[in-house]
Write a protein that binds this DNA or RNA. Structure first.
Length: 738
DNA sequence: TATTGTGTTATTTTT
DNA sequence: TAACACAATA
């Protein structure tokens, strides 16, 4: 083979220091030519453009292993960053398998985990205490609401959530409060975005807390202001590896660039065609400009796909070619056999869901496909419902991936808040969460009182409560129960010295009345919640201390429950990135839904291209069987929407498809060709006549809201001042000329 | 202060 | 539709 001789040549160029190394090099034999090059080019900047299913993780792990085998670096001199804990775990596991032993000391983890590790060591340099807390979105929002409240900002007009989002995006871009650019939403009432941002940072610092974005930003600040620290890490990390580079934001890019400056050995692996987190601050330009950012960079493309049939790859390749902003690569496979992709149209979403359930049933029955090899991939979480119903009806077991995460459940957050308050009573965000949970008769008025004192004296809520109690300023029910709570916290802190941390937490949750709160409720849901709390308490055993536990949970979103049940997987396409299934269903390919109208409204062409990449990700999850479908009528939020087939359907190459109109729908059956034709743009103009008559100032009728006047018209929707209610944005399709 | 009622508003979410 | 947040009431 061509690749084999190539490999041998390469291998012979390297001096074999030891005989044992010959055997250690064996894992290089499992690589194709491009993979081999990507693994063995260890000096200088390298971008590996790895298409879906081309062996990206294999390259990364083999590369780490290769560097270690060459003895070019100690494990502690290798930095490997991922986005998810899952990916980090997987990489660690595979490196260990390759090396045959546990590799200790590698700096392998998520961006956030590594940044937190660095920051714990150098907290003082950026004005934090070493034991700073990492707060989640809930805490962020609570803090922002406090700020808005204190500044008398009307939360009706200015949504705290929007502000939170904006702060997040600014931090993704490494923009600090004094560098905020003006834009449409620069002012929140009397205060500017940058003023509020500054106040938010100020309060976080007083709380000795950081949010996710801060982890990276403080690292950058640390490095920029302490050149000795920077150069320590620059010298330390001889080799840097980055997974999913297309998902990095500006902060992460700056952070990497700082760290890579000394040795300049940075290897980024990614796929610009799978960049689907732009809305979360990912900068696709990072991967598009890599060779300009890192001079002398080499670019290697992995284009041989080991996952899918040529029909699937053909469809994916054609679809993604409609995007302008990309490096460009052509995936190929030597799997020439395989079924065509099925394209189905349906009368409505119910029929679509029923068809998919039936088809899954026959895949299992007649093709012996285990359920776990099947996935239904959706644009958004709310679409799961109709499939839950149809699969239940067919008695097909399934699992919804994503959804509510373990650590997002209220009872888990409460429990964690109790633990945080125990470890550090001055953690006001945690203390506030549990101060009246269970109900202790402390209402908004008392709480406001405490807040004011705390702010005046610049002390924590806990300290403020103590102070007010001593001054006899907390009377009645609230005063009584707060006095008791203070005593209890004192006791629990003592208990921690004699009992184990698990026992202490158990005791605390019982004595505080938290456990009883759920017991009293005595519903099935409450029982489940109690189970969750107990599971959490049990898991505490695995940690050396409560602080250790808290560090873990703040950087992890879910329990590692990779149970391999034999069930159908339902999830969003975002959630499916990195996964693969023998059979994949992609329902709901309708304009407005997929591509999502909001993406296009918000980000125009860029938004559309990101949606197209999402379609690309969806298609390339499938190994053998793929089903794409759309429904003419879809029930969303209780009422029907009449959607056109997705423009992506027009972009798919027909030669890879079998076009089926599966069901005798309530409408007359399409002929096969027509079923496809109806998806063509010509179809889009069918509603033009009604739309033509809708103008500004026109009085209209809407089935739900009644009569109103059109204030303005955008693409497919209008602002209408309804007579009975208020002004609302509604779809033109729903309006009748009155 | 706690509970009930009403109105509003819905993507994607690696940490 | 359904969940959630906030306002009016007991």
């Amino acid at each position: 083979m061509q690749t084999a001789s190539n490999r041998n040549n390469q291998k012979n160029c390297k001096p074999n220091k030891m005989i044992s190394q010959e055997t250690k090099m064996q894992h290089l034999d499992n690589l194709n030519k491009d993979q081999f090059e990507a693994v063995t080019t260890i000096e200088g900047p390298l971008l590996v453009l790895a298409g879906a299913g081309t062996g990206k993780t294999k390259v990364l792990t083999t590369r780490i292993s290769h560097i270690l085998n060459l003895r070019n670096a100690f494990p502690s001199q290798i930095l490997a960053v991922t986005f998810t804990n899952k990916a980090a775990k997987e990489m660690k596991h595979r490196v260990e398998t390759l090396n045959g032993i546990a590799v200790e000391g590698l700096w392998l983890g998520t961006f956030h985990a590594i940044a937190a590790k660095v920051l714990r060591r150098h907290a003082k340099e950026v004005g934090l205490n070493q034991d700073f807390t990492i707060i989640d979105t809930d805490d962020q929002l609570r803090l922002i609401k406090q700020i808005f409240n204190d500044f008398n900002i009307d939360t009706e007009k200015h949504s705290p959530k929007l502000f939170l989002y904006q702060i997040g995006r600014l931090k993704d871009k490494a923009i600090t409060h004094n560098k905020v650019p003006y834009n449409d939403s620069y002012f929140f009432g009397s205060k500017s975005l940058s003023e509020l941002y500054a106040e938010y940072q100020n309060r976080l610092k007083n709380l000795n807390a950081v949010d996710f974005g801060d982890l990276l930003l403080y690292n950058i600040e640390l490095f920029n202001n302490n050149l000795d620290v920077l150069s320590e890490y620059q010298r330390k990390f001889k080799y840097i590896l980055v997974d999913e580079y297309q998902d990095t934001n500006v902060s992460q890019y700056l952070w990497l660039r700082l760290l890579a400056q000394q040795h300049n050995n940075i290897c980024c692996v990614g796929d610009d065609d799978q960049s689907i987190y732009g809305w979360r601050g990912a900068e696709i330009t990072n991967i598009l400009k890599f060779d300009k950012d890192f001079l002398g960079a080499k670019v290697i493309r992995l284009q041989q796909n080991y996952r899918s049939t040529n029909h699937i790859l053909g469809a994916a390749t054609k679809l993604i070619s409609f995007n302008q902003e990309r490096h460009g690569k052509i995936l190929w496979t030597d799997q020439q056999h395989g079924e065509k992709i099925r394209l189905n149209s349906f009368y409505d979403d119910k029929e679509e869901a029923r068809y998919i359930a039936d088809e899954i049933d026959s895949l299992k029955r007649f093709h012996s496909l285990p359920y776990s090899d099947i996935a239904i991939l959706l644009r958004a979480g709310y679409q799961t419902r109709s499939f839950e119903e149809s699969l239940n009806y067919q008695r097909i077991p399934y699992r919804i991936i994503g959804g509510m995460k373990f650590y997002e459940r209220a009872e888990i957050k409460d429990t964690i808040a109790y633990i945080r308050a125990l470890v550090n009573p001055n953690d006001s965000l945690a203390f506030e969460r549990i101060i009246n949970t269970p109900k202790r008769g402390i209402g908004a008025a008392s709480l406001q009182n405490i807040h004011i004192s705390a702010r005046e004296k610049n002390i924590s809520l806990f300290a403020a409560v103590k102070m007010l109690l001593n001054a006899g300023q907390l009377k009645g029910k609230a005063g009584q129960s707060l006095a008791e709570l203070m005593q209890q916290f004192g006791r629990w802190t003592e208990t921690l010295k004699t009992l184990s941390h698990t026992e202490t937490v158990d005791l605390m949750l019982n004595e505080s009345g938290y456990i009883d709160m759920w017991k009293t409720e005595a519903t099935e849901e409450a029982r489940e919640r109690l189970d969750n709390v107990r599971e959490l308490i049990r898991s505490l055993e695995e940690y050396g201390s409560l602080s250790e536990f808290l560090e873990h949970v703040s950087l992890v979103s879910d329990l590692d429950s990779i149970v391999n049940e034999n069930v159908v997987n339902i999830m969003t396409m975002h959630g499916a990135k990195g996964l693969e299934f023998k059979a994949v269903f992609l329902p709901g390919w309708e304009e407005g839904i997929f591509p999502s109208s909001r993406s296009i409204e918000e980000s125009g062409q860029l938004g559309l291209e990101e949606e197209r990449r999402l379609a690309y990700v969806g298609i390339t999850r499938s190994k053998e069987k793929l089903y794409i479908s759309f429904a003419n009528n879809r029930r969303i939020y209780g009422n029907y929407q009449y959607n056109q087939p997705s423009r992506f359907i027009d972009e798919l190459p027909k030669e890879h498809f079998e076009i089926i109109n599966s069901f005798g729908s309530l409408k007359p059956q399409f002929k096969k060709e027509e079923a496809f034709d109806c998806s063509l743009p010509s179809f889009l103009s069918s509603s033009a006549s009604n739309a033509d008559r809708l103008r500004r100032g026109q009085r209209v009728f809407h089935k739900k809201f009644g009569y109103g006047i059109i204030l303005s018209i955008a693409d497919d929707n209008a602002q209408v001042a309804f007579e009975k209610t208020s002004t609302k944005k509604v779809l033109l399709d729903y309006l009748e000329v009155s």
